[in-house]
Amino acid sequence: MKNTINKLDDLPLVFKNLLLENSDLINIKTPTKIEKLLLLQDTHGSYQFKKLKSNSHSKDKIHNYQDVKNEILENNYIFPNILDYKINISPERLNTNNKNNIIGLSGFQHKFSIIKDDENKIITPATNDSNYFIKPYNEYHLNFNQNLYIPCLLINEHLFMTIARDLGFSVPYNAIVKGKNDYHYIIKRFDRFGQIKFDHEEFATMLGFDTNTKYDATIIEILEEAQKYLSKIELKQLLSFIFYSVVISHGDLHSKNLSLIHQSNAFSESNKSLSPYYDISTTALYRLAEKNDIGMRIYSKKKKIKKQDFLKLAKKFKINDFEDEITRISQYFVNNFQKYINKLPDDIKNKPITQSRYNTKKSFKFILEKYYRQRCKYIKDKIDTSLVPDDNIFT
Rank of each mutant, 00 (worst) to 15 (best):
D210T: 01
I261P: 06
D84C: 03
V68D: 09
N212M: 07
L40M: 00
R192I: 06
P91Q: 12
F169Y: 09
Q195T: 14
Y371H: 06
F133Q: 08
G194Q: 08
L20K: 13
E224L: 13
R328W: 04
I383T: 04
M1D: 11
S231C: 03
L40P: 02
F112V: 08
K365H: 11
N95R: 15
N88D: 15
I393A: 11
D84Y: 01
N174L: 07
K121N: 11
D321N: 15
I319S: 03
I242A: 05
I115P: 04
A175P: 01
Q66V: 09
V334C: 03
K232R: 06
I348D: 09
I341E: 11
D216Q: 15
F49Y: 11
L235S: 03
V171T: 15
E201A: 06
E269C: 11
F193R: 07
Y277V: 08
N147Y: 13
K178I: 06
F15N: 08
G104M: 03
F267K: 02
I78Q: 14
I87F: 01
S170A: 14
Q338G: 07
T327S: 10
F144I: 09
L223F: 08
I78L: 13
F79Y: 09
Y378S: 04
P136A: 04
K361Q: 14
N131Y: 00
S240H: 01
K315F: 04
Q146P: 00
F241L: 07
L13S: 05
L142Y: 02
C376M: 14
I150T: 14
T211R: 13
M296L: 08
E369Y: 02
L223D: 03
Y173V: 05
N181P: 00
D191M: 01
P352T: 10
R192S: 06
G168Y: 03
N70S: 14
M296P: 02
K291I: 04
P389L: 12
L11Q: 06
I5D: 08
K307D: 00
N212I: 06
H110G: 00
E325F: 07
L73C: 08
N81F: 05
N174H: 13
N212Q: 12
I28P: 04
S106W: 03
N120A: 11
I155M: 13
R297H: 13
T211C: 04
K377R: 12
E157T: 01
N335M: 11
D346K: 15
Y229W: 12
K362I: 12
F79N: 03
T211S: 14
D324R: 11
K16Q: 12
K59A: 10
Q355R: 13
D346R: 12
V334S: 00
L288Q: 13
D216M: 11
K318W: 00
L159A: 14
K36P: 02
D279H: 00
H141S: 11
G104K: 00
E74K: 15
E21S: 10
I393C: 09
N342A: 15
K178R: 14
K343T: 15
S330M: 02
I150R: 10
K53P: 05
Y332A: 12
D166Q: 04
Y173G: 05
K365E: 15
E290Q: 13
F198T: 07
I187F: 07
A217Q: 07
D199N: 14
Q374P: 00
I187K: 04
I115Y: 05
I219E: 06
H44N: 10
S245W: 00
I219L: 12
Y372I: 03
N336G: 08
T32P: 08
G194V: 06
Q331V: 11
Q331F: 09
